[in-house]
Write a protein that binds this DNA or RNA. Structure first.
Lengths: 101, 101
DNA sequence: TAGCTACTTAGCCAAGATGCTAAATATGAC
DNA sequence: GTCATATTTAGCATCTTGGCTAAGTAGCTA
């Protein structure tokens, strides 16, 4: 998870996906790196569960999994600086009994 | 910043420092890797501004910079999934006018 | 000064990350 | 089937990361 966030290109992709789903090509057009490199970044994000993909004819549309990000990162933040952060709209909350990932 | 969080040993160090400042040796004792490796991890965390060091006689005590973590990570989370997170007790808040890092 | 402890710096190596080009795959249109 | 478009996979080069050992630096005690 955090390794997926370590790369600035991948963080930018996540921010771009905030506006809604995008095709791989549309994402790639925003960067000056090759399509295969973008494809690999998307694969890393998908592997981390941060995005999902859906085929639409010729294209593959990617979209953000917001809760995955908020839950994982939020859990860590809550373990390190709980006074400074509050999560909303997630199943998991700091201090609550928990199960699952 | 995020690169510093990418390594699980460094994340654990941050969690350990949550309880209060610790000497480099005390931190190292909690892991099964060599002292030089721990020293480098601490250097990375210090470079990212996530910890500060202070000499105490023979030892060097490290402590967490909570706000640095909450602000940086929180800002990113707020850019990607603002509905799911709220920051407290930091100078910067999502949506507010901002200055500085 | 010497000697001890605590920690960092230097240098090496294996593994992983990230970029590229070329080739493969998948879909849609003809 | 063939062509064009969209995307991924394969293979390679290079840089970075994270571990180690050995050596250096800093402070304390005597």
């Amino acid at each position: 998870m955090f390794r997926a966030l370590a790369d600035p290109t991948r963080r930018q992709i996540l921010e771009d996906l905030r506006a809604g789903e995008l095709a791989a090509g549309e994402i790639g057009a925003r960067f000056s790196i090759s399509a295969p490199s973008i494809s690999r970044h998307l694969g890393v994000l998908k592997g981390a569960g941060l995005v999902t993909e859906r085929r639409d004819g010729n294209r593959i549309l990617y979209s953000l999994v917001e809760e995955r990000l908020a839950t994982s990162v939020g859990r860590f933040l809550s373990a390190v600086c709980p006074e400074q952060i509050v999560l909303r709209h997630t199943k998991w909350r700091p201090g609550a009994q928990q199960e699952g990932s």
